[in-house]
Amino acid sequence: MSDIDARFAQAQADVTQLPERPGNLTLLRLYALFKQASAGDVHGDKPGFADIVGKYKYEAWAALQGTPADTAKEHYIELVESLKSGASA
């Protein structure tokens, strides 16, 4: 396992141990970065109007289209680190 993969795995574990739940926009950012890092560019059909949460998740992920997996992992790690230190919510 490379260094970036090990740090990404640690950040995934750390995010479940945050002292407080991040806001919805931060949760969307975490979701999108995780999906881009682990599954690549968005795929599948965009959820319909009735699935508001799914639509926002899809759009957040789609906004990262073309971002390399390692870059998404770095951003995910940085975001989790800032949340752990209380710098952003």
Results as ranks from 00 to 15, higher is better:
M1F: 10
S2P: 04
S2L: 07
S2K: 03
S2T: 12
D5L: 13
D5N: 14
A6M: 07
A6W: 04
R7V: 07
R7K: 15
R7M: 09
R7E: 14
R7N: 11
F8M: 08
Q10H: 08
Q10W: 02
Q10K: 13
Q12K: 15
Q12P: 06
Q12A: 12
D14M: 02
V15Q: 12
V15N: 08
Q17S: 11
L18E: 07
P19I: 04
P19M: 04
E20D: 09
P22S: 08
P22V: 04
L25P: 00
T26N: 03
L27K: 14
L28A: 05
R29H: 10
R29S: 11
A32T: 02
A32N: 10
K35N: 08
K35M: 15
K35R: 15
Q36K: 05
A37V: 01
A37F: 08
S38K: 04
A39T: 11
G40F: 08
G40T: 05
G40Y: 06
D41P: 01
V42M: 05
V42S: 00
G44R: 00
G44L: 13
G44C: 06
G44S: 00
D45F: 12
K46P: 04
P47L: 00
G48C: 04
F49P: 02
A50P: 00
A50G: 09
A50E: 15
D51R: 10
D51Q: 01
I52A: 15
I52E: 12
V53M: 08
G54Y: 03
G54M: 01
K55V: 02
K55L: 09
Y56A: 07
Y56I: 00
Y56N: 12
K57D: 05
Y58T: 08
Y58H: 14
Y58K: 04
E59V: 06
L64K: 07
L64H: 00
Q65D: 11
G66D: 10
T67H: 02
A69I: 03
T71R: 10
T71S: 11
A72E: 01
A72W: 07
A72F: 06
A72T: 08
K73D: 02
E74L: 09
E74H: 03
H75L: 12
H75P: 00
Y76I: 02
I77C: 01
I77V: 12
I77H: 01
E78A: 13
E78T: 10
E78V: 09
V80H: 08
E81C: 00
E81D: 12
S82T: 10
K84A: 08
K84E: 14
K84H: 07
S85R: 14
G86L: 13
G86I: 02
G86F: 09
G86N: 02
A87P: 00
A87G: 11
A87E: 14
S88I: 15
S88H: 12
S88D: 12
S88Y: 11
S88W: 09
A89W: 13
A89H: 15
